[in-house]
């Protein structure tokens, strides 16, 4: 089990990876979305916000989310640190993403652009 602080740290690593990738920022200029990241086994919520291609992270839930990402704390930390890709946990149900199919593909894409090989 990961702690809330570990999930925060993983999201900050994700944000750092994102912000270093200028091409990814260009690719997401049109995609303004609010993402709620919620652990299923501990009380932990975070907000990822993409606006004009920039990604910000903050603790706590947003008033309204376009996408909700739910998984156990360990999976969330692994995912945002890039130790695992989202596809497998998404396909086996460990990771649930609530939102439009296009947005789910886009989120998968961002993660692979940051951590993929």
């Amino acid at each position: 089990m990961a702690s809330h602080a570990e999930i925060t740290a993983s999201l900050l690593a994700f944000q750092e990876g994102y912000n270093k990738n200028e091409r990814l920022k260009i690719m997401n200029r049109d995609w303004d979305r609010v993402v709620l990241v919620q652990a299923s086994d501990i009380p932990s919520q975070h907000t990822l916000e993409l606006q004009n291609g920039e990604l910000s992270v903050r603790e706590g839930a947003p008033p309204r989310a376009d996408l909700t990402v739910i998984a156990d704390s360990e999976t969330l930390a692994d995912l945002f640190y890039g130790d695992i890709t989202p596809t497998e946990p998404y396909m086996n149900g460990t990771l649930k993403i609530i939102g439009s199919e296009d947005d789910i593909v886009r989120l998968d894409f961002i993660s692979l652009m940051i951590w993929g090989e």
Binding site: P86, T87, M91, V105, D108, F109, L112, M113, G116, E117
Partner: peptide, 16 residues
């Protein structure tokens, strides 16, 4: 393709 396809090819085809 090298970055994305190894994983994206595992998604249900109707998503792509």
């Amino acid at each position: 393709a090298a970055r994305l396809l190894p994983e994206m090819s595992k998604l249900p085809f109707h998503m792509l």
